[in-house]
Amino acid sequence: MADKLDSMFGDVTVDDFGPVKLKAFRDELVANGMPTKWKHKRKKPKKPLARTYINRIINSVIGMFTIAVAGELVDVSKVQQLKTLDTLRNGQTTAPETEPVRPVPIEHVRMTAPFLSPIIKAMLRIQVATGMRPGEVCIMRPCDIDRSGDNWIYVPSKHKTGWRGKAKAVPIIDDARDAITDFLQRHPESYCFSPKEAMEWRRAVGAAKRTAPLSCGNRKGTNVKKDPN
């Protein structure tokens, strides 16, 4: 979207960019959306942008001016002026609405378990039992889990609201405790879950199911880059 903003108002000074021009940019997003990938050279079809996404783009533009105010490059009145533009509201625009994101039924999650590697399966069990974010499960280390009491407590080394100075502690009980136990034998400061080990399991399963003779296709080590980035 930055290219579209630049093409429309790249030669406009900060003093001349106000709510009217910001609304014109928003109207362009509503009317024309963004081009989709198209392999032919004819005119690219347009993909309509959702109302909530357009509002986020407009807030990002205002955010750029807010950063400029912090750097004493723009007067704060410019940000206040841009914020007078009302957001697009449901039912008051032709921009489409997005479907609400709903949780996956737990029955569907359980159906995937037989096909997962032991590492991914353990991570799934822990996340379902505790409600942790995926990133918090990925960075679990033995040293982050206090096992001195009857109840184990996991304190993530970093989490979403850590930058606000808030602490977080997650009880590791029931199925989560059973799932993590086998991975606590590692070095205290190493991660419990290794992507390398998960990929080794996946490749081993694929090799066991191989039907093509070894003289055909790829074999172990034949398609590995000597100097990967």
Rank of each mutant, 00 (worst) to 15 (best):
R89Y: 06
T94Y: 01
N55G: 08
V79K: 13
R56C: 10
K83F: 03
S60L: 11
V76K: 09
T36G: 12
G91K: 07
T93P: 08
V79D: 02
K41N: 12
I67Y: 10
T93C: 08
M64W: 11
T84W: 03
I54V: 07
L82C: 02
G91F: 00
K44H: 05
T93M: 07
K43D: 12
P48R: 01
S60Y: 05
V61H: 00
N90H: 12
M34D: 01
A68W: 01
F65V: 00
P45N: 11
K37Y: 08
D75A: 13
I67V: 14
Y53I: 00
V79N: 09
E72G: 06
R42I: 02
R89K: 15
H40N: 14
Q80A: 13
S60T: 12
L88K: 02
P45Q: 09
Y53P: 00
I67K: 12
P48L: 03
M34Y: 02
G71K: 14
M34P: 00
K37M: 03
R89D: 09
T84N: 04
K46Q: 15
R56Y: 04
L82H: 01
N90R: 15
V61Y: 01
I58H: 02
T52H: 10
A70N: 15
L85A: 04
V69Q: 03
V61A: 00
Q81T: 14
N90V: 14
N55F: 09
L88G: 01
N55H: 09
K43Y: 09
L85Y: 04
Q80L: 15
M64V: 11
Q80R: 15
